[in-house]
Nucleic acid binder design. Structure first.
Lengths: 252, 252
DNA sequence: ACATCCTTTGTGAAAAATTCACATTCTTCG
DNA sequence: CGAAGAATGTGAATTTTTCACAAAGGATGT
């Protein structure tokens, strides 16, 4: 068995996610199709790939698929969130210290983040995990009690943390917004963190897809006037946009 | 398209992980094999399964495979770690406050943990994530700078955290141990946390598979005499066991 | 109720992919 | 060098999948 060829095939599949036998035959004209089949069988046995009709698929590719599936199930409005994320990335600058809130919109945001040098502070575990894969940004996690529904830390300890931290830009998210109650969320301790961040940050950017508008949650942590930039999607109500701009907020 | 049949097929595949077309034909004799094929095609398009020669495989099953693969690659000594984990679980008591170190042995440990009422403090993201799935234990995450190689927080902020925290039992892990340098690890800040924990905890339990013995890392955080219980696997050197027991440490 | 349209299902032939068994070539090692 | 064993090639046999079209079923509007 030619080990080098198998290795090359494996790499190819890892990189491309999926490959057809026909393409393998094209790329390795020096061996017969049967040999390539046997190579794939080999790789399948070692658990790296899965043979499917017509070729093979990388197991890693598959796990990515699972993630997407999971995403779709648990997150509404994926399209809107991705759009918001892309708009928000433009506000990232090198050498800046940024706070990133927990929440699923923020997760899409970090997925878009460039691999450049800045400092991230967050209370969201998923955010931290995602960023840990990168090389560049330094990530500081706010400590505290972990709430299992949103995988974010909060609580008295967390507030203590902020005393020594400076934040240039804060990317915040909210569970709900209406004109009467402003931006609100579902837990007291979470709202405390958000308040602290708002007080600390030089620039406050709110990421909120339009499905949150017109709703209300128990704990208000900010008014419209507390933010500097509001990023949303196409479904954002025009009258609210006007009202925000009246207050000097740029709505994107 | 019969939605109910497709649903039943999907469930079957989810439960069994994998199914052959022949078996489907047996289970659904009221429809033709072509229909079943079309059902599978459908499910594949919606991303739930993957069709392979002769049948189909659940995507979830595949991702489980990936995890195992990942485990094998990144963790040596899985068997030993599982054994250690099982032994360690016996030291958990309700209403206690326990610290769980970051590290892969600890991860196996939390997977074994019962779903009862106690308080967990940890600096390991994976640990926190795993526990967040459970209902019972309350999890407090130590804040600080996240190091991407072991997904643990550490640094000056972390130490501050411990001032208000009490720990009944600490489950610690080490990257290396030898008689000269004691228990050691690869980062200064990590060793600071471990030291703090050791100073705070009433009972100190070290989880260490035997492959770590006889090695040394740059930063020592504890001596043999600093721990109360040492949990390892069968490969643990008898003379070291004797030496530890001499010091009043119970070696399990 | 009936005709019409659309969707789902069934059928068997055609195509494609995969396996198999055996021949051949290439290595390696005594 | 020669024999044994591994790797590869070949073409036929087998299996699986696809395809195209027919039949059946169901909804809808007149």
């Amino acid at each position: 068995m030619n080990h080098e060829r198998i290795e090359r095939i494996s790499e190819l599949i890892q990189k491309r996610g999926r490959i057809s036998l026909d393409e393998l035959i094209e790329r390795f004209p020096e061996v017969s199709s049967m040999t390539l089949r046997r190579d794939l069988l080999n790789l399948e046995e070692s658990g790296v790939i899965l043979r499917v009709r017509g070729g093979a698929i990388s197991v890693r590719e598959l796990s990515k698929k699972t993630e997407e599936l999971f995403d779709k199930r648990h997150n509404q409005n994926v399209a809107a969130k991705k759009i918001i994320a892309q708009k928000a990335v433009k506000f990232i600058e090198t050498e800046h210290s940024v706070f990133i809130d927990s929440g699923s919109t923020a997760l899409y945001f970090v997925k878009e983040l460039p691999d450049i040098n800045y400092y991230v502070v967050t209370n969201g575990l998923s955010i931290a995990m995602e960023l840990a894969r990168r090389t560049m940004p330094s990530v500081t996690l706010i400590g505290g009690v972990l709430s299992s529904n949103n995988l974010a830390t909060s609580g008295g300890m967390s507030k203590l943390f902020f005393e020594d931290i400076n934040i240039d830009t804060a990317f915040l998210s909210a569970t709900a917004f209406n004109e009467e109650n402003g931006f609100s969320c579902g837990s007291q301790s979470e709202s405390e963190i958000k308040k602290t961040v708002i007080a600390k940050a030089k620039k406050r950017i709110m990421l909120m897809d339009s499905s949150k508008v017109g709703k209300s949650m128990p704990f208000t942590f900010a008014r419209l006037s507390d933010v500097d930039v509001l990023i949303s999607d196409d479904g954002f109500p025009a009258e609210l946009k006007a009202a925000a701009e009246e207050l000097g907020i740029s709505v994107i």
